[in-house]
Design a protein around this nucleic acid. Structure first.
Ligand SMILES: [Mn+2]
Ligand SMILES: [Mn+2]
Ligand SMILES: [Zn+2]
Ligand SMILES: [Zn+2]
Lengths: 141, 141
DNA sequence: GTAAAATCTGCAACTTTGTTGCATATTATT
DNA sequence: AATAATATGCAACAAAGTTGCAGATTTTAC
């Protein structure tokens, strides 16, 4: 099911950060690459087909990918956490995420970088920013 | 415990949106006014002193305040939802929220409005935006 | 002011989402 | 191949939020 090109890429990414290349990590990275948008544990589980990773494994895998920076947590209006590959993010900000108020779908809005916020209060050091947008997607507008 | 000035304000807000003036709503509005930052259900419960509202009541109260726009859900890196008064927000965006990576405290950064994002993709209608910032607060920097 | 209608509230039970401990399996290193 | 290091699955648990329903409050109509 996982195309071997994605598997290669996943292995490379894992090697680069010195994580064990396990089938869980490879598959989850491939799923995130294919998705191209933030996914929840449950969505990842559903997309992993016959493999049926335990949810504990999925969470721990995401945690390990998060720690080395391969993956980011994306803020959503959803209850469950959503994770996505970090490869479209700069050090200081991910691209904005958009939720359609009508159909509920999530979109990554690449290629629009908001200026980094600058606090008007003295003493705040801002290291990262995340922007979330809400409105109507092209299909619903 | 609730100062009667806040109670007055709360009653007026509720009247204005045609919600019943119940002690739960009044107290929770007052708590949010005093806090001046987003609070979770659990934080609200702890601040409500001897009243001991059931958590179901708190959630349902927040839901009703949310529906009429008196309150907003603020995105946080915390697991629990956080709610705040909507009176410092424009129609299209709340002020940004800041989380200190060291002490975990949340700050509302009033008075800095990021420009509204404009999608580079045709067909997206953006109605609201929320910005979340992470870094070091003055006490921890 | 009182009765009726409308809306809230608390409780108990439940769902969803995420975590911990521990024994076993897999991966990497020598 | 043996060993060390790390990952996985299972079961049990914890935290956050929801639902149904009976009884309590609040509002409205008289
Ligand atoms: Mn994204
Ligand atoms: Mn705020
Ligand atoms: Zn849509
Ligand atoms: Zn701090």
């Amino acid at each position: 099911m996982i195309d071997s090109n994605l598997e290669m890429k996943a292995r490379k990414m894992l090697k680069a950060v010195k994580l064990y290349c396990t089938s869980g990590r490879i598959d989850i990275l491939a799923i995130l690459m294919k998705a191209g948008k933030p996914l929840s544990q449950e969505q990842i589980a559903r997309r992993s087909g016959e493999k049926h990773f335990d949810k504990v494994t999925i969470y721990r895998t995401l945690e390990s990918l998060l720690k080395v920076g391969l993956v980011h947590k994306a803020f959503m209006d959803k209850r469950a956490w959503h994770f996505e590959l970090a490869h479209n993010c700069t050090e200081h900000q991910c691209h904005p995420h958009f939720t359609c108020t009508n159909c509920g779908n999530i979109h990554c809005l690449m290629g629009m970088s908001l200026p980094m916020a600058k606090s008007p209060y003295k003493g705040f050091v801002i290291n990262r920013q995340q922007v979330w947008l809400e409105g109507l997607c092209p299909a619903c507008a």
